[in-house]
Amino acid sequence: MSPNRNTPDAPEGRELHRRRFLSAAALGGATIVGASALGGLDADAAFAAPSPSLDPAIAKTSFAEGRVAGINGSMLEVAGSHGEFHRVQLTNATSIWKLHPTTADAVEPGDGLYARGVEMPDGSIAADAVWVNIVNLHCTIRGIGRDRLELAHNNHAVVGRVVKGTTAASYHGSALSSDLSRLRIGQDAQVLGAWRPKDDSIDIARVSVGR
């Protein structure tokens, strides 16, 4: 897969026009600043605040997990890890994450995925969001190289690849930064990234280290 297919940074022709239109629309929209609505409330008031629509208690959303067994147009056939089977419909409103926000043609058979969406009458799931090969692992940093971190997860060795321009680090809860030079061997780290089925390594999206 070429990196450009995954990074929406190099638009061409129509897409460029579309982005300019969207940019102008966004800048013409409302500006929202100010104090938090829910964060400042006490526990009871926070619970009493009305829920937004994305509320699983109302069972509006469905969830699918598994590996892509086949791709039929924009329909993903997904074999669940516990023997179940899902059909996940990608639409032109579906977000697809595979290390970056990407498009449907980046999904390959053998990929693992989590999908959130709405169940259709025919039993398929119209996906709102699909996360492909995403993992979020608690690791220990065992080694640091120029393009990789040697990680131990549950004492299994895992190679974490540093992806230039993408991999970001957070230190003790700080904002995510492109500066990876404060990572240390022996640190506990939470690594969020995209698993690569071909070589079982992980492309790192973000690594958060504690004290």
Binding site: F47, E65, Y114, A129, W131
Partner: peptide, 18 residues
């Protein structure tokens, strides 16, 4: 992932919760 994605995006690794 099922529970987390119901209230947030998996690609953001953490959330403040009550």
């Amino acid at each position: 992932p099922a529970a987390y994605s119901a209230i947030g995006s998996l690609s953001s690794g953490k959330l403040p919760v009550w």
